[in-house]
């Protein structure tokens, strides 16, 4: 995305971050994209919730999604101010 369009996007870094995570590198995964680990947790929890149907599962998912969205926003604003976008 970055090379094609010239501008980094809020979702950019996610793939690099997941690849780093698959290599077992938690720290560089977090540096590339801080929301990856919470987001993967969120997906995992959602799948378990859909199978097991927790009582307050939907509520927890809502809060977690808001949390991840805030991390992504903060990360993107931080990138804008540190000129990492281009």
């Amino acid at each position: 995305m970055k090379q094609t369009f010239g501008i980094d996007c809020p979702g950019c870094g996610l793939q690099r971050s997941i690849i780093a995570l698959m290599h077992g590198d938690l720290i560089s995964s977090f540096k590339l994209y801080p929301a990856t680990i919470p987001f993967l947790f969120l997906i995992g929890f959602t799948l378990v919730h859909l199978k097991a149907d927790f009582r307050s599962g939907a509520q927890i998912i809502k809060i977690a999604v808001g949390f991840v969205a805030i991390i992504i926003l903060i990360n993107y604003i931080y990138k804008i101010f540190t000129h990492q976008l281009i």
Partner: peptide
Amino acid sequence: ATIALILGILSIPGCCCYGILG
């Protein structure tokens, strides 16, 4: 309901591609 939940979660990292996918 399940489809809505999954799509809603996937829309968050989907803000790539000019934000259109998300």
